[in-house]
Amino acid sequence: MLKDITLGQYFPGTTVAHKLDPRTKILLVVLYIVALFCAKSLVTYGLMALCLAVCVYISKVSIKALVRGLKPVLFIIIFTGILNLFFTPGDRYLVEWGFLHISDTGLRNAVFMVLRIMLLIMGTFLMTYTTSPISLTDGLERLLNGLKKLHVPVHELAMMMSIALRFIPTLIEETDKIMSAQKARGADFESGNLIQKAKALIPILVPLFISAFRRADELATAMECRCYHGGEGRTKLHVLQYQRRDYIALALGVLICAGVIVLRQFGL
């Protein structure tokens, strides 16, 4: 059933990882990504993996859930691995097999590349697992606040994002209902070739779009009735405020990132 899809993938909790300010978490992920792309030796990769492991431990997110997050990109990981493994020219070939060959640098690159992608994905997933979509949106809005001066509609974008998040479950439920109603009229979504299958979607998509527009219209009126008039002069129920733990976490993040860059200078 459509309802079973988990979106946002937030696992509520009360650990330090959950309590950190969303802005801190976004900045930490940025630092983490920078560090990952600077890492080029076993030592630095090991350091990054260790960082992730510590964060996972603190957040109490199950390893299983993190690994599950890798599934959709498994193909890309394997593909990149194979590409690097077989097609990297090197000084010394370990195996040669017609036009296929595995060089020492190839093996190295493949392992690092796969490691990098996996760490990258697990790191970002850890953030979405421990941060609710709404506070993530909030954090982004506050971080990008400076762009308002450049006439970037930061508030509007954030509002759009949070309304989209709010309506995802409603629209999924609606899709389910419309599908059942059309099935009751004998609609067949399973059989036939690709074109027939695409055509079979029309009886779902048309009512869904009409309903989405109607909802948007009614929501806009309801928002106006509740005195919504853009981001100007708006206050907040939950004001984001950096705590001591945020400063500590950010300091640690900067330190580690800087460390990786320094190590890189030393060829590690």
Binding site: P133, I134, R166, R215, E218, L219, A222
Partner: peptide, 9 residues
């Protein structure tokens, strides 16, 4: 329609 006037999740 209760669904179309609730803004936040």
């Amino acid at each position: 329609n209760p669904d179309n006037q609730i803004v936040a999740n």
